[in-house]
Structures are given as C-alpha cells and as structure tokens.
C-alpha cells in the first residue's frame, strides 16, 4: 500500500489526487451504470445488458463512447452561457467532495479538520448547476424541474446537516479521519449502533439529495419528461449523469465513514472494507429505485419539513444531552 501521507509537497499531492480521483470517478461511474442496469434487469426478471462483451460488461463503455460522439445541441433561445456552464458546474465540484474522504488508512486527498464541512458546502454547488440547467435551456419542463430541484435540495440539506451534527457532537470533530478512528472494527463498535435514527434519516436524505428514486422529482420522467436535463444531449447529459453517480458515491462514502466505521472492518481493516460498505449502500439505493413509485413533489417536501427535520432536531437534542451527561 502506497503511503499517500508520505508525499510531502501539497501541490504535487493535490495533482496526483485529482488524477487518481478522475480515474476513480470514471471507473466507478462505468461500474455503477453497469450495476444499476444489471440490478434493474434481474429485479425485472430479464438479463439486463448482455450484448457488448461477456454478460454486457462493456456496455457502459459503449454508452460512454456514444455520449462522447454525439452532437452537442443547444436549443434555440437558450442562454448558451448558462446552458453549457451548468453541466460543468455540476461535475467539477465533485472532485472537491472526494478530497477529504479517507478511503483507507492514510488514503485521502487533503487532510483537513473540517472535512465534513467542506463536503457539505461544496455539495451545495449541485443545486446551482441544476437551477442554471433548467433556467438556461429555455424549456418549461426544465424550468419546472429546476424549481423542484432547488426547493428539494435546499430542504433536504437541513436534516442532512442535523444528523451529521449529531455524529459530530458525539465524536467532537468534523475530521473524517478522526471520526473513522473513533469507531471500532466490529459492527457493534460503529456509530450506527448509537445513532440508528440519524443513520436512517441521513441515508433517506442522501437519496433525496442525489435526486434518486423515489425522490427523483426534479427529473420525474412521467411528469416532466426529463426535468432539468430535458434539452441536454451528448456529454452535456453525460456530465449530469456522471455527476449524479459520483454524488451517490460521495454520500455513500460519507455514510460509511460517519456510521459504518469507514475502512475499519473485522479481521483485516483496509480500503476493501470501505468499498464493500459503500457498494452495499449503493445497492440499496438502486434497490429502492426499482421498487418504489415516485413520491409526489409536495409530499417530498412535507416528509422533509414535517418528519425529518423535527426528528433530526430531537435526535440532536437527545445526543447533546447524553453527551453532556456522560
């Protein structure tokens, strides 16, 4: 295992990290697309992609090539600047989100004691991107999708933050490395045992925050055709798509670190445990998508404001009291 902490120069380290992350995001994006389609297929009792490569493993590569090769079309009357800024703005902050995540012992991009805050702050960029995409494409469906995306993302950031705060109260730090360090290898030593409600709320909000079914109202296919990315073609759509999957990886990684002990695991701790836990969470997210109908837009907000925020607040209060008492 290469010790990343041993590389002295911060600039070099950052460049290396970003290259490594680009590869990581790209590969994981391809893998997740394949996984999603296979899971969808098997749940629906069909094989899923099967034609390109053995059992269709190369299908995502073919898809990516197709997306890259497609003509980029901007609709007439669209605000070209905003229209093309949006997908880039949606994708670029993803790199920052990955930097503080500790994938393994000393395997992280930037060591910062405010890692959690960095992730939460930069995750907010996505809202802006969706908003610009919907507004810039001069499409009514896009506009409705953007309006939905903004109100949903803004609403769900609150309970997300509150649950994260509960964990931070317990551990007394916002450094992801330290949070991992404070948890043990075995499941009963993880934060999920002490904070089960926070975990459930965090995970549900994460599903909503990444616009995944059953909370995929900004792109609700049967209502808004495709929502904010209705007008995007080729890699414009591809970047949104990749950003969605990358964000899924981020939220699942954060959930893994906060609640499931990060890279620590029984027997031999290491990055593999991190990947196993992260992919388990991703699988559950996909499982949700292929099982449930879509929640109506106002219900999505109601769930957040009337259930998650009060529950998260109560949980936070309880945590604070217990931390103070013990």
């Amino acid at each position: 295992m290469m010790n990343f902490a041993a590389i002295p120069e911060p600039a070099l380290r950052l460049v290396l990290c970003i290259v490594a992350l680009a590869v990581f995001i790209g590969l994981n994006g391809l893998l997740l697309v394949y996984m999603e389609r296979k899971i969808a297929g098997h749940i629906q009792r069909r094989p899923g992609p099967f034609e390109v490569g053995p059992h269709g493993v190369l299908t995502p590569v073919a898809d990516a090539l197709k997306l890259v090769g497609k003509q980029l079309v901007a609709p007439e009357g669209a605000d070209k600047w905003l229209f093309w800024t949006a997908p880039i703005l949606s994708f670029m902050p993803i790199f920052v989100l990955f930097l503080p995540i500790e994938f393994g012992p000393n395997l992280f991009g930037v060591e910062t004691n405010l890692g959690l805050l960095l992730i939460l702050a930069f995750a907010g960029f996505n809202v802006l991107a969706l908003c610009l995409a919907g507004w810039g494409s001069n499409n009514k469906w896009g506009l409705l999708g953007a309006a939905r995306a903004v109100s949903q993302s803004v609403a769900y950031e609150i309970p997300l933050l509150l649950t994260v705060l509960a964990v931070a109260f317990m551990t007394g730090t916002l450094d992801l490395g330290e949070i991992t360090a404070m948890q043990g290898a075995w499941p009963w030593q993880w934060n999920v045992v002490t904070q089960p409600l926070a975990f459930v709320i965090f995970f549900t909000c994460a599903v909503a925050e990444t616009n995944r079914a059953p909370f995929d109202v900004p792109e609700a296919e049967s209502e808004l055709t495709a929502g904010f990315h209705t007008e995007y073609s080729g890699m414009g759509f591809g970047l949104f798509f990749l950003a969605e999957y990358a964000e899924m990886i981020v939220v699942c990684s954060v959930a893994t670190i906060l609640f499931l002990g990060g890279w620590k695991g029984p027997f031999i701790s290491g990055p593999w445990w991190f990947l196993v836990k992260m992919y388990a969470l991703l699988t559950i997210m996909m499982w949700f998508r292929w099982t449930y109908p879509r929640v109506r837009f106002d219900q999505v907000l109601n769930i957040c404001w009337k259930w998650f925020i009060p529950l998260a607040l109560a949980n936070l209060l309880l945590t604070a009291v217990l931390v103070k008492v013990f």
Binding site: Q44, R45, P214, S222, T291, R294
Partner: peptide, 16 residues
C-alpha cells in the same frame, strides 16, 4: 399506471 407514478418494475411483472 405504475409507470406513470414512477415505479418501473411492476410493468415488467405485469408483462410476464
């Protein structure tokens, strides 16, 4: 109808 409501899987079971 379930597809309208956003659930993708039921139509496949119905088609079976």
């Amino acid at each position: 109808y379930l597809l309208d409501l956003g659930a993708f899987t039921p139509i496949m079971y119905a088609f079976e």
